[in-house]
Amino acid sequence: MSGDGRLPYDAVLCDFDGVIRHHDPGEMIGLERAWGLAEGTTMKIAMAPERLVPVARGQITTREWVASIVAELEHLLGETERARTLGRAFAEARALLDKEVLALLRRARARVPVVLVTNATVQLEDDLQALGLAHFFDEVVSSARVGAAKPERRIYEIAAGRAGADAVRCLFVDDRRENVEAARALGMTGVLYREVADLRGALAPLLEGDHGPAFA
């Protein structure tokens, strides 16, 4: 808290995958190795802009996205069944939540709005419900619902607006450098997330005097 009693931020805007939610790629990597593909091939295919951007903007369904991944895998493997198996391993990878990150965000939310800002598919709401996070955030800004994806300027402006905060008073946390740089270009305080310590350090001025538990 500053000397005049003003909080350092009026809102916290946080990414989902790579910060709060992590997927276990073990099965997928094992299949890639067994079938002669370089580790990470499936993920690279999935995240290629020509596939990711349409699903992130809600222009195609999650099923269509996975089907396009399988089609490319089939081209590489020369076999339909293995491609489908890898596609299922990608789509059904076990989701893991970082409890310490959630605990820090819960403490932050006691002081300012916490907004989820994520490049997501139209399945996001179902995922949040299944993970017990349907009511965790003050607002959820999903690229598939607003038709704009990070690092596009518009999604940041929507997020700040829903938080009721000026961009320059927002803390933005993401695990992708280009997304953080786009937030900084709008005047936000951008944090490139690599580990929990990054978030803890960024929130320290906001949580000053709050000695709540690190986990919840």
Rank of each mutant, 00 (worst) to 15 (best):
A93Y: 05
F90R: 08
A95M: 15
L207A: 07
Q129V: 12
V117W: 02
E39L: 09
M188W: 01
L97V: 15
G30C: 12
F215T: 14
P205N: 08
D10V: 03
F16K: 01
T118D: 02
C14I: 07
D210E: 15
D210R: 15
L186A: 04
A56Y: 10
A197V: 12
V114G: 00
E157L: 08
A165N: 03
I155V: 15
V12I: 06
I60Y: 01
C170T: 06
A144S: 15
L124H: 09
R162T: 04
E32W: 01
Y193D: 02
R111C: 03
F136H: 06
F16G: 00
H23W: 11
A216V: 11
G201A: 11
D126Y: 12
R84C: 09
A182N: 04
R107A: 08
R107V: 13
R82T: 08
G18C: 01
T62H: 14
T61S: 14
M28E: 14
V19L: 07
A67M: 09
A120F: 03
L13V: 07
A34C: 11
V12G: 00
L131N: 06
A103W: 05
V141E: 01
L76W: 08
A160E: 04
A34V: 14
G26M: 10
R106P: 00
E64F: 06
R162S: 01
G58M: 02
T189F: 01
G18K: 08
G147W: 10
G40A: 09
T118Q: 05
L133H: 07
H22W: 13
G5L: 07
G58H: 05
A110T: 13
P8V: 12
I158Q: 05
G40F: 06
A214E: 10
A148F: 06
R111D: 03
I155M: 05
L76N: 06
R111E: 08
T80W: 15
I69T: 04
S68I: 05
R21S: 12
G18I: 05
G87R: 06
H75V: 13
R63F: 09
P205W: 09
A11N: 04
Y9R: 02
I20R: 00
H22T: 11
A148T: 11
D126F: 15
A91G: 05
D126T: 15
R88N: 08
L207F: 05
R162H: 02
T85P: 01
L171A: 03
T42Y: 07
A182E: 03
E208A: 11
E74V: 06
P49R: 11
K44G: 13
A216T: 14
R51D: 13
I155L: 07
Q129R: 15
T42L: 04
Q123Y: 08
P54W: 10
I45D: 00
F215Y: 11
L203M: 12
A134Y: 06
E39F: 05
G164H: 02
G147E: 05
I29E: 10
V66D: 03
I69Q: 04
D138E: 07
Q59S: 11
R51W: 13
L131K: 12
A56L: 04
T62N: 12
G132Y: 08
A144P: 00
T121P: 01
D15F: 01
A95H: 14
D166Y: 03
V196H: 04
Q129N: 09
E125C: 05
E92L: 14
A71W: 09
V173F: 02
A216M: 13
A160C: 08
G132D: 08
A103H: 07
P54H: 09
L131C: 13
L116I: 11
